[in-house]
Nucleic acid binder design. Structure first.
Lengths: 347, 347
DNA sequence: CTGAAAGCGCTAACAC
DNA sequence: GTGTTAGCGCTTTCAG
């Protein structure tokens, strides 16, 4: 009961392995009649292609590698979902690695992926990756590399990120539209790019509507509930209290939500609130938390599309061409998710 | 700049491919000296093994396939996390497929996995899988098949599930321990096994503590917030109101939580509440929701362990042996996560 | 302890 | 339109 091979089929139909192979792969130079016959025989014998042999010979695995910090984080789970979905529909499969935010695992993952001759790699870089050598290695091997969310421009790879500035702008604008006018912001550590971008989006939106940007209304917190609580409390103690808060992360927004309620303010009546990230808990807190969605699934789909583009270019014989053009950078528009916490006006 | 192969190394050190291969694989019949020399040369030439070739020849890929409904569901993301973690530390990689709850995709996934000659498959069966032929095919091909969470006993495969009965029992017991005595239950459709199991655990716990099992205190809802709200409302309208509720899913627990608060009851003072599933939102609602954790990551780890066992057996030459013993079934103990909603007593 | 030979199952030139 | 030939890069008997 050994495995059925194309030799077996060839014997069965009095043909040869190469003809069988071509027929099964719908090669144009095989007559319709033979194709049909061979395919019937294959079905009959319960033939199943050996992709290892095929890949080894053809140099193409139809497998792409994914490296993410952890599949246990909702955001990345959703991105993987998006990638897998469109990858499969294009005949590609997914080899999944987690870096656990560790450079070491990331290096290991890249190494294994390269050994497996994957056709491409889609990655989101770990927080503590000390150097990028392993990724440069990928590029040197001419394996398409696509980055998403946790991007490094130095790698000069196609990438997809969400527009943090714009998301913050939209959130702030929404609050303004709801009639709030003293809008505070709970930001995060400024050396992290996204937090700075979101702060800028916030400030610019205020300016665009001729509202003052008041330093007293900007808090720099950490990414935790407690920090959100604290920041909210301090904001409500300022002489001229805010009537709304835009928090740079949902988790601090939640902390703020709790404290604001505790202090006896009506939400969204007296104080409006919006977060960023659209976490899985956001719809379920009370009042439900408005937020900015980063479209993770879409991010995955676009990443795969970028991989496909890279493949096409490669096939085009442009392999040797100097990298004249900058790599494609897709900047996704975030989407506003309006729930109770920010909706002062009746709909 | 073609790929470096063991031939290149052999040439470099005046040896042969077979010796190089053995040295690189730490084969016992190679002297330490040669090993060292060959490894040095390999490093020097920047050699990277071609796993395709290796797998094709050896018949072992060190890849296992995973089939889950969707990586966008927190539970499955966590399971995958667990599997990948221990798989990697044992030298295995993960090929990931989503069934999207669809039999068709599941079949496709199994087919591709088999074509790729994976060493094993770990799966959680899609809801609408009409027949199990594809999984029987896996078994026929002697590829180890492990099931988790969504299990089918007919497949007679090793599996890991969580003990629903016990989780419900523990939850109910916990409420009793907190001094609640009229404990209601919001269940789900009884044709779904887990809901029936949880109902039994609930009832048995009451009996064990000599509390009556009152039909008026059992609601059969759907898996939605709204259903939870409705069930809670009806429970609070019964002549002799409950002083605590155990909900079979966190999402109905949340609906109950909202309605109970709305009706003006103190929680956990007047009404205690506990859910099941420990969803990602549960820590963040107010009051934070006690729940029963299903240990998804652990489930993944155990699943992989089961795969390893199956491999060991296979290697043992027991291939032909009749399946005398029933397949291992690991039943994980759920863990109680006590938060505010159920904690009446001071700690 | 090392090497020679064979081949895993497939595809891709090239002939016919 | 079909068949022949030659490997992809590796591991694995089996000789020596």
């Amino acid at each position: 009961m050994a495995r059925v091979t194309i030799h077996d089929i060839a014997r069965e139909v009095n043909s040869t392995p190469s003809t069988v192979s071509k027929a099964l792969n719908d090669h144009p130079s095989i007559s319709a009649a033979t194709k049909e016959m061979i395919k019937a025989a294959a079905l009959n014998l319960n033939y199943r292609q050996n992709r290892l042999a095929s890949s080894l010979r053809s140099g193409k695995t139809n497998i792409i590698g994914i490296i993410i910090p952890s599949s246990d984080i909702g955001f990345f789970g959703a991105v993987v979902h998006g990638i897998e979905k469109v990858a499969r529909s294009n005949g590609y499969n997914i080899l999944l690695f987690q870096s656990h935010e560790t450079g070491e695992y990331e290096v290991e993952g890249v190494e294994t992926l390269l050994q497996t001759s994957v056709d491409g790699i889609i990655a989101s870089i770990a927080k503590d990756t000390p150097n990028l050598d392993h990724f440069y290695d990928v590029k040197k091997r001419k394996v398409p590399l696509i980055l998403f969310d946790r991007v490094k421009d130095e790698l000069e790879s196609p990438s997809v990120v969400v527009d943090d500035y714009r998301g913050a702008y939209m959130a702030t604008e929404h609050l303004i539209g709801q009639g709030y006018s003293r809008i505070a912001h709970i930001s995060g550590p400024q050396h992290v790019k996204i937090f700075n971008d979101r702060l800028c989006g916030y400030a610019d939106a205020l300016r665009a509507y001729n509202l003052p940007v008041d330093d007293d209304l900007i808090q720099y917190g950490k990414t935790s509930i407690e920090s959100g609580q604290l920041c909210a409390e301090q904001l409500m103690q300022t002489p001229r209290k805010p009537d709304a808060i835009f928090a740079a992360v949902d988790i601090t927004a939640l902390g703020a939500l709790q404290r604001i309620k505790q202090l006896g303010y009506q939400m969204p009546g007296q104080v409006g609130l919006i977060g960023f990230g659209n976490e899985s808990f956001s719809p379920y807190v009370t009042p439900s938390l408005s937020s900015v969605d980063q479209q993770p699934a879409r991010m995955g789909e676009e990443s795969f599309q970028l991989f496909l583009n890279a493949m096409a270019k490669k096939g085009n014989g442009q392999i040797v061409e100097e990298e004249t053009e900058a790599p494609t950078k897709i900047i996704l528009d975030p989407v506003l998710v309006i729930r109770e916490s920010s909706q002062r006006k009746h709909v």
